[in-house]
């Protein structure tokens, strides 16, 4: 085979791979939209589910999912900010830095079901908090911690040293520099990280299905220690009845809503990231 032939074969195989990938993408979104759209109506979005989840709407599932991620974000943010500041402003030791990095990336790599088991043992059983949405929020906050921390760290760390030096020269102590100069500049990193983290957390099933959710009967929780119902666990219950057309339609509807929520969070994150990139370049 001569060189030209090889080159051509190379282009063909690349083209084939790209076609397959595009088709997969097209198929996945096509199927979710095609099947989900007919299910979605105002009633579906505003009614509670009845008859085993097969009838009615998903309003409390949407509410539960948002409640979980909202509190996950609230719990995660202060810890992530603190860790990012430490990593960027206080930690000077190379080895410690490496260890901390390794720990953060390790946390990021832990399979989601392991978080679920950890939550089941530690919070539900040992701390005896029962199956409750706050446990779900705590677990999800741990899951998104690495993303938020690293994103904040990058934003703070990329602030030029001259800012720090000139603020110190004005007589500000280290903490004042951090709060008054670095945090306002670097906060967009935390927000970006949170949005990316939330986009991932809202679709998670495995970490919350043993510890935070219930199948039906849940409306607005009146305390921290009650379960909620969520979109992913609702889809899980309905997916098992894949031959019941009514349940299946509701499952697709819930899936489309879930994907839309994910997309909203990812796109907001993308916008913030792009805006700050263009600002820092100009």
């Amino acid at each position: 085979m001569n060189r030209n032939m090889k080159n051509r074969l190379f282009y063909i195989s690349i083209g084939l791979a790209v076609t397959i990938c595009s088709l997969i993408l097209l198929f996945l979104f096509g199927i979710i939209i095609w099947n989900g759209l007919p299910a979605i109506s105002l009633d579906f979005l505003t009614n509670s589910s009845t008859n085993f989840g097969a009838d009615g709407g998903i309003v409390y599932q949407i509410f539960g999912s948002i409640l979980l991620i909202l509190f996950a974000a609230l719990i995660c943010l202060p810890i992530a900010l603190g860790t990012a500041i430490y990593k960027s402003e206080y930690l000077k030791n190379e080895i410690l830095h490496k260890i901390l990095n390794t720990l953060i990336y390790s946390l990021n790599g832990i399979p989601s079901i392991i978080f679920g088991i950890f939550g089941l043992i530690f919070f539900v059983n040992l701390l005896n908090m029962g199956i409750s949405w706050i446990v779900g929020s705590i677990i999800l906050s741990i899951m998104i911690l690495p993303t938020v921390t690293l994103s904040t760290y990058q934003a703070i760390n990329s602030i030029p040293t001259v800012y720090r030096e000139s603020s110190s020269a004005l007589g500000l102590n280290k903490w004042q520099v951090i709060v008054q100069v670095l945090l306002p500049q670097g906060f967009h990193g935390a927000v970006t990280g949170l949005l990316i983290g939330i986009a991932r957390a809202i679709g998670e099933t495995a970490p919350i299905m043993f510890i935070a959710t219930a199948f039906s009967g849940v409306e607005l929780p009146s305390s921290f220690l009650e379960p909620v119902s969520t979109l992913p666990t609702h889809i899980l219950a309905l997916a098992q009845q894949a031959t019941n057309p009514v349940a299946l339609q509701n499952a697709w509807g819930a899936s489309l809503v879930l994907v839309m929520l994910v997309i909203i969070f990812s796109i907001s994150a993308l916008f913030i990231r792009l805006r700050h990139q263009s600002i820092s370049k100009s």
Binding site: F52, S222, S223
Partner: peptide
């Protein structure tokens, strides 16, 4: 709030998927 929560505000039920349809509808 965690400490002041009264855990007995709702009836919590879980288990068999055979009995579930009865309970689900009965609860409604």
């Amino acid at each position: 709030i965690l400490n002041s929560c009264d855990k007995k505000q709702a009836i919590n039920i879980a288990g068999s998927t055979t009995v579930l349809p009865i309970i689900s509808i009965a609860a409604e």
